[in-house]
Amino acid sequence: MQKHANKYKEADDSELVKAAIEGDSNAFGEIVNRYRQMVARTVKGMLGDTVFAEDLGQEVFINLYNSLSGFRGEAKLSTYIQRIAVNLTLNEIKRRKRFFSMFSRTDDDEVIEYNVADDSDNEGKRDAREVVNKALMSLEPKFRIVVAMRMLQGYSTKETAEILKLPVGTVLSRLARGQEQLKKILKARRYENQ
């Protein structure tokens, strides 16, 4: 399999898609290899670094496989995959929110689930990923997605707008509000740690 997989290393996305539609699992394997980190950044950035996020990552690629024949190449393959990842992740967040609202009377249960205010461990022990993870989980989902796109994927405002199918102005304002929230969260935590 490795031998065949290497055959696709140099192939461009459209060739891979064509071969995968024809049933070549090595071609699809190469697509997964190529975009797995991008999906991991979106899914884990939004849901946290959990086993569940791994399962959702798998679901993203299974959905991609099932919808590949409908991919007409109007958008880049990376954008198409990113949209699937974002939609599945947002659906999962909504599902969790519904589930937790059955047991909670508060409105901001999403924040409660990932409450990060209780940093009991020492600052020195925490690594960068933990800081990023906790900061992201403290944000409301609509801000979290644009912040994750910028912070983890390095997307520009225009690219984020294209993936999320939102106007650029909306992305800009969410980014600004997300930044404001982040400043408060990180500043508060810095204060707590002193």
Binding site: R36, Q37, V39, A40, R41, V43, K44, G45, D49, E54, G57, D127, A128, R129, V131, V132, L152
Partner: peptide, 9 residues
């Protein structure tokens, strides 16, 4: 580089 990145297992 500081480790703030995600990947699957």
């Amino acid at each position: 580089e500081a480790g703030a990145d995600y990947s699957f297992s």
